[in-house]
Design a protein around this nucleic acid. Sequence first.
DNA 1: CCCGAATATTGACCACCATCAATATATGAT
DNA 2: ATCATATATTGATGGTGGTCAATATTCGGG
Lengths: 116, 116
Amino acid sequence: MNLLPVLESATEDSCCAPAGSPALGAEEAKQKALVFKALADPNRLRLLSIVKAEAAGESCVCDLTGPLDLGQPTVSHHLKILVEAGLLHREKRGTWAYYSLVPGALEETAGLLATL
Amino acid sequence: MNLLPVLESATEDSCCAPAGSPALGAEEAKQKALVFKALADPNRLRLLSIVKAEAAGESCVCDLTGPLDLGQPTVSHHLKILVEAGLLHREKRGTWAYYSLVPGALEETAGLLATL
DNA sequence: CCCGAATATTGACCACCATCAATATATGAT
DNA sequence: ATCATATATTGATGGTGGTCAATATTCGGG
């Protein structure tokens, strides 16, 4: 699918704002809003937090359904949104799916606020 | 109303996480999500951007309805959400309402990502 | 090859949200 | 006091999003 989620340099077109643009254009705003939309849910914030706190740097879905009070399909749904936003990385090993923070993604997202 | 919006130290209870807490609790996550919810709309990002870019440091509603393709009531609605999130400050002078960035609010929001 | 386990997908439901039209409120000027 | 202007509020509507139950998929083991 590949939603080119502002984080990690996307494709050629609409990659950057017109240099020192005075204010956000409609398209840039829509792209940036996608990342914040992914962060705008308490359970997704907790998912990020749990993955980040894990010593191994990664968690499988079975480790995430417990702490949150949600069913497995709902957790999978939230994880998908976080992956599509460029915040989480998904690696399937055997039957298990391991999720880990995309390195630098949170810092890059923080940077979006500075360049508003 | 006063929604104690995570930004600028709220009231006494539930002010901070339990020091070096390993992962986000449900309540903290809900509070933090409120700020990101406010940022999760393209038009609100553009509003913040325009206010920030203004040399005077403030803009009135009439300056904001033009750039965005929205009616005046909708802009007022978005501005209210940004004020309640602790991101914008509203000052009424005469018939006009002037909106300005709350100093340090964007930086503090960026910090929320670091302390996930 | 079939079974069980882990995860993903589908479809449905309900709540919330963004937007607008209409109206209300407030303030300055005449 | 009246009027015009700037902003806020209300009510309604269409769309989006979070959640679950049920089902599908994928993979390792026997």
